[in-house]
Simulated assay, not measured.
Amino acid sequence: MRVQSLTLAAAAAAALLATAPVVLSTTSTTGSPGSPAAPAREGSVQAADLLARLQGCDPVSHGRYRSDDGTRAEIPVCGIPGAVHWTADMDIDCDGRAGPLCNSRTDPLFSESTAFTQSDGRYLSAETLPYIVVPAPSDIWNFREHGIGPGSVAVVIYRDRVQYAVVGDTGPQDIIGEASYATAAGLGIRPDPRGGGTPSGVTYLVFKNARVSPVQDHAAAVATGERLARALLGDG
């Protein structure tokens, strides 16, 4: 029965997700600067259900990624109808607009810019906006060829927690597994850019052709991510 239900879920997801881009236009923004709130479950989709749906890997990358400099390239980007996913570590991205938690004093590798910007042209705030980092396009994998770009909706899964996010920055061409301070905090992962993060066990799911606008509207990312995650599980 489990195999049959997953087959039906995949068919339903393919029908719903293989559509024109989803763009939500709103005017709200994320919370005010400061320490992110204590982890709270977003939505009702369960981490275990998503992980069961993402078992196995049909690679869409032409090679594999490293989790960090000096490690072996062992991480593929996998494809399912309407989405891509990978499981890796989580390094902490504290780049972008400086605040009390992310700045040149708290992060020795701090950069004032992110690859993508808010609707007002300012760089993203890693400490307030949950976003993930995708590898810069290369011969290994080009995220743009899979309907992914700034504001693409993502779901990040760690243990029993689910955090909705957007694609907000790019990283090295050969390394994968990084997300913003706010994403880590939402998952209960230590968000300190100096030695925070976790070495393994984080699953990143990114939906194709599904973006929110403005990119900083986290409420829109949650609503869209929850709807698409339910569709992926056959509950939509």
Results as ranks from 00 to 15, higher is better:
69 D>R: 15
70 G>F: 14
70 G>I: 14
71 T>D: 15
74 E>G: 05
75 I>K: 06
75 I>A: 00
75 I>G: 00
77 V>I: 15
77 V>M: 00
79 G>V: 00
79 G>M: 00
79 G>R: 01
80 I>D: 13
81 P>N: 13
81 P>D: 07
82 G>P: 03
82 G>Y: 08
82 G>T: 06
83 A>F: 05
84 V>C: 03
84 V>A: 04
85 H>W: 13
85 H>T: 06
85 H>C: 02
86 W>P: 00
89 D>R: 09
89 D>W: 05
89 D>Q: 12
90 M>R: 05
90 M>C: 06
90 M>G: 04
91 D>H: 04
93 D>H: 10
97 R>K: 12
98 A>L: 07
100 P>A: 06
101 L>Y: 06
103 N>D: 02
103 N>V: 04
103 N>R: 06
105 R>I: 09
106 T>W: 03
108 P>S: 02
108 P>W: 01
109 L>T: 03
110 F>L: 02
110 F>I: 08
111 S>V: 03
112 E>P: 07
112 E>T: 08
112 E>G: 14
112 E>W: 06
113 S>R: 12
115 A>N: 09
115 A>K: 13
116 F>S: 01
120 D>M: 08
120 D>Q: 12
121 G>V: 11
122 R>K: 09
122 R>S: 15
122 R>I: 11
122 R>V: 14
122 R>Q: 12
123 Y>S: 15
124 L>K: 14
125 S>F: 11
125 S>P: 08
125 S>K: 12
125 S>D: 14
126 A>D: 15
126 A>T: 14
127 E>G: 10
127 E>A: 09
128 T>H: 06
128 T>K: 13
128 T>Y: 06
129 L>T: 13
